[in-house]
Design a protein around this nucleic acid. Structure first.
Lengths: 182, 182
DNA sequence: AAGACATATATCGAAATGATATATGCCCAA
DNA sequence: TTGGGCATATATCATTTCGATATATGTCTT
């Protein structure tokens, strides 16, 4: 998905500045769609405004930096619905942890153990984040994707805890550890 | 993760051409790490060879295009292990389907239904692919990540089937459908 | 009073994508 | 038998995106 659609989707839930869109696309559930940078968001907003999909107004409060607040137009809403009515692309899943797991035999046991601990922590944080954001919203669609995400991550965590020993045993024994002979 | 590490990881399991690396990074379990294009793989291989992490030899068979086959060197293996010993970055998950789900209320019921059917098909294909590739390999690390991936996708599919009606009910009733009045 | 942090916009080099060009050989169907 | 489609193979390039940095202001803490 491109940044245009992300901006339109976020602005469809309320007006926002480029800065806020960037924060949301990195720190909130919007991060499940695309992760965008300032360098892609600001040009996308300018172009969308020129095309009439967005309008903007400046908010000036003395002392504070001027805020350029964008709002979606009917044309923008049309483009958003039109894009979402096309068949969605395949989900993207990329994991550096899985690379380490696949290559466990090349690594020291301690390295693998740390990578697993690290990932368990990440999954626990993710679960807490999803739980919190689900409780904060009344929006049904957002609640649904939160429920889906929670179930998936919960199962991922469960499997990892139940199968970590098998993975650790593939790694090279650390120097201070005893390992049964072949 | 960058393309360099992907190339080293793949070549650590055996020599290959740029073309084969691209195919593997798109079509096999290597796609869980990064998805790379020709435009990033060829320059990465050239640079790695200059740096002494790879060697190459040309294979010429009459009639066939010349193959530039790359092999990993000890230096390359060192860089690979070194990179994998750092703490892995967070997993990346991006889903256009979840955007559609979140925005279900804006869309027609038929659109949402198709998106769900489509995703169920994708998950089923993915499960079959993981099962097949797990059966084809004897490599324990590869088997472990296949088992992990299978468990995660299986649960994802199960949840989706069990909760699709709730999601569909958020969408706008299609014109030919009856919906109970508010 | 200073330093860290958050808000806010903007730009830019480097990296990566996605598409296209070029070339060869093989296989199958009209 | 020939021609189209497909697979192999390398290479390039415009466009997109990232990640870092610059600039500015205000607040909060120590």
């Amino acid at each position: 998905m491109n940044i245009r659609t992300l901006c339109l989707a976020i602005l469809n839930f309320g007006q926002a500045t480029g800065y806020e869109i960037k924060k949301m696309s990195s720190d909130t559930h919007y991060a499940y769609f695309v992760d965008a940078s300032f360098g892609s968001i600001y040009p996308a907003l300018s172009k969308l405004e020129v095309e009439g999909c967005l309008t903007s107004h400046e908010e000036r409060e003395p002392g504070k930096p001027a805020r350029k607040v964008y709002s979606i137009t009917d044309k923008g809403r049309l483009e958003l619905v039109s894009h979402m009515s096309d068949a969605p692309k395949k989900d993207i899943f990329k994991s550096e942890f899985l690379l380490i797991a696949m290559c466990a035999e090349m690594l020291e046991r301690e390295t693998v153990r740390k990578a697993i601990d690290n990932r368990i922590l990440q999954l626990e944080e993710e679960l807490k984040f999803i739980k919190d954001s689900s409780e904060e919203t009344e929006h049904e669609g957002t609640k649904w994707i939160a429920g889906y995400g929670y179930a998936c991550q919960e199962n991922s965590l469960k499997y990892l805890i139940e199968n970590r020993e098998k993975l650790e045993s593939l790694a090279q024994a650390s120097s201070q550890e005893l390992e049964p002979a072949e």
